[in-house]
């Protein structure tokens, strides 16, 4: 899932400051699961914003809504009248959601209330960790199911840098050395020999650098003319 974190309340209040009537929109998908932007956060953040305005002797009208996924327009369109009624929209979606919201309602200012962090998993309640960098070309089959690109601070492809101590990374001692994990896993699987194969440099043109990427499935894609027809 996409893991995100709420912006500090100060920042939220500052963004809201110029407005009297706003819409706060949550997303019931990934960011709900990482406890950042679901229905409850919408309601908590809205009541905090009202309280803040109240303590200044002023008031603010906040409409609350939560959609299934902010990254699909079909879920956003039903919000049209609420968006219309608001001076600005505050999205508790990830970066994708905020952008699609802005694209869908080009006449309204749309503000992000989350900082989108990474693709990851829930390690334990309250702790989420990164597991995938979206490099575009998966090599997990060769590394015992542990990704050296996402989990090695240096993104090394052919073994550890030699700088780890007590199993921890020299860049961040809170992080396990990914290559040690890979070694141990392959040992468990009895496949240590496979490490002898040298991995060629990756084709980074498929990764999250440079031009924006897209995936096209020609068999699924509906030509735009047909939609209009």
């Amino acid at each position: 899932m996409i893991v995100a974190e709420q912006k500090p309340l100060e920042a939220v209040l500052k963004m809201m400051a110029p407005y009297q009537r706003v819409l706060v929109v949550g997303c019931a998908s990934c960011v709900s699961v990482c406890l950042a932007g679901g229905e409850r956060e919408v309601s908590v953040l809205s009541s905090l914003a009202r309280l803040a305005r109240g303590t200044q002797g002023a008031s603010i009208e906040i409409a609350e809504a939560t959609v299934h996924r902010q990254c699909d327009q079909e879920f956003l369109l039903p919000l049209a009248s609420q968006v219309e009624a608001a001076e600005a929209v505050f999205s508790l979606g990830c970066g994708c959601g905020v952008q699609l919201m802005a694209e869908t309602f080009p006449h309204r200012r749309v503000f992000p209330l989350l900082d989108t962090k990474f693709m990851g998993i829930t390690l334990q309640p309250g702790v989420w960790v990164e597991r995938c960098r979206g490099c575009g070309e998966c090599i997990l089959d060769r590394t015992g199911g542990i990704c050296p690109i996402a989990r090695c601070s240096k993104g090394l492809l052919n073994g550890p840098c030699g700088g780890y101590r007590d199993g921890k990374c020299e860049v961040d001692t809170a992080v396990d050395c990914a290559w040690l994990l890979i070694f141990n896993r392959l040992q468990t699987l009895g496949e240590l020999e496979s490490l002898r194969a040298i991995m060629e440099p990756k084709d980074w043109s498929e990764a999250a650098v440079g031009r924006p990427r897209q995936v096209v499935r020609e068999d699924v894609k509906v030509p735009i003319e047909e939609v209009i027809a």
């Binding site: 019931a28 709900s32 679901g38 309640p125």
Partner: peptide
């Protein structure tokens, strides 16, 4: 209808 299947309840 509202559940996001985040499993938080199951964990806590």
């Amino acid at each position: 209808e509202r559940c996001a299947f985040c499993l938080t309840c199951l964990r806590v």
